[in-house]
Design a protein around this nucleic acid. Structure first.
Lengths: 334, 334
DNA sequence: CTGTTAGCGCCTTCAA
DNA sequence: TTGAAGGCGCTAACAG
């Protein structure tokens, strides 16, 4: 690959002149600049990042430790947001994917991250969870995207699950729904509690006749990603009862909603005439395939990545847990 | 960040001794080695990648140009496979995401890729398409994952769509299905033709009474990713006819199947008793939510990434278009 | 305006 | 077994 030296040779100037043509063109005479530029184009020269980096003159670099992206690819948007945001500021990003439970791989991943001498670290997770911040990473400025930690005070950017589910609850109250069935995501997820609270508060705040409100809470035991399980309670109900005594199924995420749709439709229920359904996530590429379109709430993947990146770029000093609004996506399922 | 020099100072040895402790431990006396090691641990020293790279002693690097991952996150597995594979060989990988249609961004992406002085380039796409290989990238060894090009002879690794759809066709014939309705993915996709051919050959090869076979081909016009469109013909049919004259809906992908399921179930059809359905893709996180489980074919995302990486690592010299088998995923929808 | 020198962190080569 | 010198590609600081 062509180096500065090659360009200098071809242009018949010194190394520094070429360097300047790249970084301070106005410090050169127009003639020299043109000559150098021609040589650069001719050789297709592109500066060597490593060489610049060693001198500490590249834009800064953010190392991203991405956890578990494989199983839930929908959150890639976090990574894309980081990449796009840092690029806008002339920074670079470097992503390492790994899994929390593979210690050896994690160790290797961390070392690889450090070997690139990042100016900051973002730890991103596919689904909201508590993460451990690897010891060796704690020397860097850190921001968390879609995860939190108890290890140390560090800023995190996560979805405002309370607000999202609250908004759904409010909407349902306004529309006059009285008997919701809440099909949770696993009870050991962080999001679960916030969503439960959000939904209940939206309901109880508006309904004076609390006895009319029936909320059935079902929790799935499994920790797996098999959201089919989330709809199991509904399966039971459909088998046991001729007619459901609920007017809306509030689903913990769009995947559970998909299962619910199939169950309801196959039992002759019309959505939303006979029974309404709501989701959560706004799964990219899927959400709009529901018939009728699913009313759901969007996980702010892009914003989480963007904000975490900005946190490091702008050197924000807070160590708060920023809850990002989940916009309501109005469909026709309720 | 600690450098070799710092470690040397702390250990009271020369720079080179530390370097050797890292790369040729056996060339040191055990005592010195232990002393150095202690210093390394104490400082948490990790070699500076850029400095190694500039000397050309790091493992090699593969630059990945990832196209359009945002819209279809399901193919991230290609990137994960690349990362995992190169790591196994002590290589590194570096991913840049961008879009084909943004020329300025593409230009920038290519330069960034080159600035890392990769030893090889993989171009990966979210969905199988023809790509242009940027001029400046052609100087490197290249492998394509989930895409092909007409620009130059270069190895590509893509799904064997013919084989995949053939297998589905064969299965349906064996099970006695006679009247398929084929809901294609857009007709301008590369995969479409291969799948059509695969399906037809499976059918016509076995059925002697060709008149009994009814294949209705519908093509969607839109070039968008809105696979809802793919099911439009089915919507029309359901509106026009009391009872469908098909015994199986062969869907161009799982997303179309997703729509088809809802349409059929809401019209009182039981799957597969009244009408069967098949998919294509085995979309991660979605495929197993179908009720009944969808019989589909898996896009070999992992294998495509892995093989493209191996192509570069092993310095394979062919420039063929490798079609990778799509395994049949047996569900209960046919 | 342009060139020379020095040095970033590391490793190869050669000398001790 | 260990150390010193030189250089990878680049740029900041200083000369000319």
């Amino acid at each position: 690959m062509a180096s500065l030296k090659d360009v200098a040779q071809l242009a018949g100037v010194s190394l520094m002149t070429v360097s300047r043509a790249l970084n301070n063109p106005d410090k050169l005479s127009d003639k020299t600049y043109q000559a150098v530029k021609r040589a650069i184009d001719q050789l297709g020269y592109v500066p060597n990042f490593a060489a610049q980096n060693i001198r500490g003159v590249t834009g800064k670099t953010i190392g991203v430790l991405s956890l578990g992206t494989a199983t839930t690819p929908f959150s890639v948007e976090i990574l894309l947001a980081i990449e796009k945001t840092v690029r806008k500021f002339g920074w670079h990003s470097y992503v390492i994917n790994t899994f929390e439970n593979d210690e050896a791989e994690m160790e290797q991943a961390v070392e690889q991250l450090i070997s690139h001498r990042p100016n900051g670290i973002i730890i991103a997770r596919n689904g909201l969870k508590i993460v451990q911040v690897p010891e060796k990473l704690r020397q860097f400025p850190i921001a968390l995207a879609n995860c939190v930690t108890e290890d140390l005070p560090v800023a995190s950017y996560i979805p405002d699950d309370y607000q999202g589910q609250y908004k759904i609850g409010k909407l349902l109250v306004e529309k006059g729904y009285k008997k919701p069935l809440f099909l949770h995501i696993p009870h050991n997820y962080i999001a679960t509690k916030a969503r439960k609270k959000g939904f209940e508060q939206a309901f109880f705040a508006e309904e004076t006749d609390k006895s009319a409100v029936k909320i059935s809470h079902y929790f799935m035991q499994a920790d797996g990603e098999d959201y089919f399980e989330g709809a199991k309670p509904l399966i039971d109900l459909l088998q046991r009862h001729k007619k459901l005594d609920y007017d809306v199924i509030v689903c913990g995420n769009d995947r559970i909603a998909f299962v619910a749709y199939q169950l309801l439709l196959s039992h002759g229920y019309r959505i939303p005439e006979d029974i309404a359904v709501t989701g959560y996530d706004n799964m990219v590429g899927i959400a709009r395939l529901f018939i009728p379109p699913l009313t759901t709430v969007e996980l702010p993947h892009y914003a989480m990545g963007e904000q975490a990146a900005l946190h490091l770029i702008e050197e924000r000093e807070d160590t708060e847990c920023h809850k990002i609004t989940c916009p309501l996506i109005m469909g026709k399922s309720c």
